[in-house]
Computed example of a mutant assay.
Amino acid sequence: MGDLIKQLKPQTPGQEEMLIALTNKKYDIVGLFGPTGSGKSLFSLLYGVDAIITGEYKRFVISRPIIDVTSGKEVSAAELGDMYYKIVLNYVNDILSDYIDINKIRELVDAGKIIVADTHYLRGRTFDDAIIFLDDAHSVPVESAIEILTRIGRNSRLIIAGDPVFQRELGSRDGASLLRELLLGEESARVVDLGLKDIVRPGARKGVRLLLETKLRTRKLKESEKMVIDAARIRAPDAEIVTVVEFIDEKKIVGLKTETMPDALIIVKEGHAGRVIGKGGERITGLENDTGLRLRAVELTLDFKPLIRALHPIGWIHKHIVDADFAGPDLLVKVNSEAYPAFVGQKGSHIRFLDLVMRRLLNTGVKVIEVEEKAEEKEKGEKGKEKKKESRSENK
Rank of each mutant, 00 (worst) to 15 (best):
A161L: 04
A161D: 00
A161V: 01
G162A: 02
G162S: 03
D163E: 04
V165K: 01
F166Y: 03
R168N: 01
E169H: 03
L170S: 01
G171W: 06
R173L: 12
R173I: 05
G175C: 03
G175Q: 05
A176D: 12
S177K: 10
L178V: 07
L178P: 03
L178I: 04
L178W: 06
L178M: 05
R180A: 00
E181H: 08
E181D: 05
E181S: 09
L183M: 09
E186M: 09
E186R: 04
S188A: 15
R190C: 08
V191E: 00
V192W: 05
V192C: 01
V192M: 02
V192G: 01
G195K: 11
L196G: 09
K197W: 01
K197N: 00
D198Y: 09
I199G: 07
I199T: 02
I199L: 08
V200S: 07
R201I: 06
R201P: 09
R201W: 11
G203N: 15
G203K: 11
K206E: 07
G207H: 09
G207V: 11
G207C: 14
V208F: 05
V208T: 09
V208N: 10
R209T: 13
L211Q: 13
L211S: 14
L211P: 13
L212M: 15
L212F: 10
E213C: 04
T214H: 13
L216H: 02
R217E: 08
R217W: 08
T218N: 14
T218P: 10
T218S: 15
K220G: 05
E223F: 04
E223L: 09
S224I: 09
K226A: 15
M227F: 10
I229D: 10
D230A: 11
D230L: 09
A232D: 14
R235N: 13
R235F: 15
R235D: 14
P237T: 03
P237A: 11
E240H: 13
T243L: 06
T243Q: 05
T243R: 03
V244M: 14
V245K: 04
V245P: 04
E246V: 07
I248G: 12
D249R: 15
K251R: 13
K251N: 09
V254P: 00
V254I: 05
V254E: 00
G255N: 09
G255E: 01
L256R: 01
K257A: 12
K257H: 10
T260P: 01
T260C: 01
M261K: 08
M261W: 15
D263G: 14
